[in-house]
Nucleic acid binder design. Structure first.
Length: 556
RNA sequence: GCGGGUGUAGCUCAAUGGUAGAGCGGCUGCCUUCCAAGCAGCAUGCGAGGGUUCGAUUCCCUUCACCCGCUCCA
């Protein structure tokens, strides 16, 4: 599928516009047009209905360890700055980056090791170099273990100074190894070091901060002390309201809290249409359970969420459930699976994340109680301490543990987090829906047709009501049907031009059904219903239209 | 953020240092009894800013956006 055609259709028919377009646009921000807003709302409402309001807490669902409660929440985008310090985002999102002007590569400043290398040129095979006196030079590398650092540097420096690999141990010596920021703090100029993929000094730029959280100011006179952040995820609002929900709603562990809302990340490279946007909408569940059942719940949610996308029309061959490897796991996670879709803009065989289902353990609740936990202290997780021996970021001090009055047990619940991107899901459904096929024209000749084969639950418009011609009372009969349908569904009335053109218009925006009033309607009260995908038509009584559409959309 | 490419109507594209055209789409009317029909008419644009020039959509600079690659991606 050609992505350009979909982007063009989205613009042309009012699904998606670039934000602030009349001013030239703004990178990483997108607006949903009249049809796009309906589509995205349908995605979010399907999710909310299927996960929250439609959840049957009285039954044990297939694959679930037990019955469970579900409830919702809608919290603010701006929260107390301490939330982000304890969540770990504050530390993680303040990355300093350096660029190499020679190789055009970019590095995390704090991930570079600086090795002071003693060079003895007399081991060189190059006569010019071998005459020089021994000297030291600072080389950098991303390798973290001494063996890897040695292998990297012996190779690179060996090449530069014409030293055979068997002589490298004599020619070079690692005099000192520091993290690059520490070396610079100790007084070495950045211009004196060799970049990780270069072999001459002086190609690294000064470190620049990439603040991946949007900063804002609370209060009209606010200064730096009043800095706050737009949330980079909705999840933290659920954690900080955990106790409120438990105390106010009669839910019992295991239970989930769902939230849909905007989040903001200053992505370095927004790209691929809406896939990586700086302002985006998440659909997140934090599911709280007893620690000893958490693995079962993790598997349940992983499979349940995967099935949800299948049920709404993403095909198994383009949708994959991928378990993360241990080294890929986030700092808090003891198990994560991504639900990924083969977006057409990705290279063949590559998938893009729609949703991450993470087992977060008790990292979040305990961090908000005790202070930010040290992600490197797995598996027991201890509070991360600052230079003064006190917690680096203080927690709330509130007790967020849960008392199970049946088992007479107190514990900090473990958390399973299915975190879905509403915009990414919407984009995936659009990509999957886009089809070009042929349909016969009035002379029976095949004509190219563009059709969005959206699941009827997701389609922005559920049905179009069309008088075959604009006379003989057909518009009046059609309008009556239109008004009846409108009480339940987003429907569209169109009496302009030839009916074939009107069918094609509806195909292009994914309307699953067209109801047509014709001459026969006026005599026997029946209308035709046309199916978008098969082009088949059948007749039903005009007054049965709402029931027919309801049945076909919801499968009732 | 770096390198390369691209910005002309709602969409797809053309032409030009001297006031921008087409097809499709849209709107209005006529016609039209089932899959983008026909006729008539209407509307809409040089991404933004600056410079060179008598005159810039065209040449130059800056900027913004998009695409490809790199980088990044909780």
């Amino acid at each position: 599928m050609d992505m350009d055609k979909l982007v063009s259709l989205c613009k042309r028919r009012g699904f998606l516009f670039q934000s602030s377009e009349i001013y030239g646009g703004l990178n990483g921000f997108w607006d949903y047009g009249p049809l796009g807003v309906e589509l995205k709302r349908n995605v979010k409402e399907a999710w909310w209905r299927d996960m929250v309001t439609g959840h049957d807490e009285l039954s044990q669902l297939p694959g679930a360890p037990s019955a469970y409660d579900m409830t919702g929440l809608d919290c603010t985008i701006i929260m107390h700055p301490q939330v982000w310090k304890c969540s770990g985002h504050y530390d993680l999102f303040h990355d300093f980056m350096v660029d190499c002007t020679s190789t055009k590569k970019r590095y995390r400043y704090d991930q570079i090791y600086a090795v002071t290398l003693s060079v003895k040129p007399n081991h060189s095979t190059n006569p010019e170099i071998s005459k020089q006196q021994p000297f030291t030079e600072v080389w950098t590398t991303l390798a973290s273990t001494p063996d890897e650092q040695k292998a990297d540097l012996w190779k690179r420096a060996g090449g530069k100074y014409s030293v055979r690999s068997k002589n490298a141990d004599e020619a070079f010596e690692m005099v000192d190894v520091k993290k690059l920021p520490d070396l610079v703090k100790a007084g070495t100029a950045l211009t004196a070091v060799v970049a990780p993929d270069a072999n001459v000094p002086g190609t690294l730029t000064a470190p620049r901060e990439f603040n991946l959280m949007f900063k804002t100011i609370v209060g009209a006179l606010g200064g730096e002390d009043d800095a706050a952040f737009l949330r980079p995820e909705t999840a933290q609002g659920i954690f900080v309201n955990f106790k409120n929900v438990v105390d106010s709603s009669r839910v019992k562990v295991p239970f989930g809290i769902a939230q849909v809302g905007k989040s903001f990340r200053n992505e370095i490279t927004p790209r691929n249409f809406t896939f990586r946007s700086r302002e985006f909408e998440q659909m997140e569940i934090e599911f709280f359970c007893k620690p000893d059942t958490s693995q079962q719940w993790y598997k349940y949610w992983r499979d349940r969420r995967y099935q949800w996308y299948l049920d709404l029309g993403l095909p198994r061959e383009r949708l994959q459930l991928r378990e993360h490897h241990a080294e890929e796991l986030s700092h808090y996670s003891i198990g994560t699976a991504d639900i990924e879709y083969a977006f057409p803009f990705l290279p063949a065989g590559e998938f893009g994340e729609l949703e991450g289902v993470a087992h977060r353990g008790d990292f979040d609740l305990r961090s908000h109680m005790e202070g930010k936990l040290d992600p490197n202290s797995k598996p027991d997780l201890k509070v991360e301490l600052g230079p003064d021996g006190k917690p680096k970021h203080r927690g709330s001090g509130k007790d967020l543990s849960y008392f199970d009055d049946q088992a007479r047990q107190r514990f900090v619940p473990h958390v399973i987090e299915p975190s879905a991107g509403a915009d990414r899901a919407t984009l995936a459904f659009l990509c999957e829906a886009y089809h070009e096929d042929t349909a016969p024209d009035e002379n029976g000749k095949p004509q190219e047709r563009v059709v969005l084969k959206l699941h009827p639950r997701l389609a922005p418009i559920k049905a179009a009501v069309l008088p075959l011609v604009k006379k003989d009372g057909m518009p009046e009969a059609a309008q009556k049907i239109y008004r009846a349908l409108k009480k339940q569904f987003n429907v569209y009335y169109d009496d302009g031009g030839a009916v074939g053109r009107r069918y094609r218009r509806q195909d292009e925006i994914g309307t699953p059904y067209c109801i047509t009033v014709d001459g026969q309607t006026l005599t026997d009260g029946t209308v035709t219903v046309r199916d978008r995908d098969s082009l088949k038509q059948w007749r039903i009584k005009a007054e049965e239209c709402p029931a027919e559409i309801a049945k076909r959309i919801n499968g009732e």
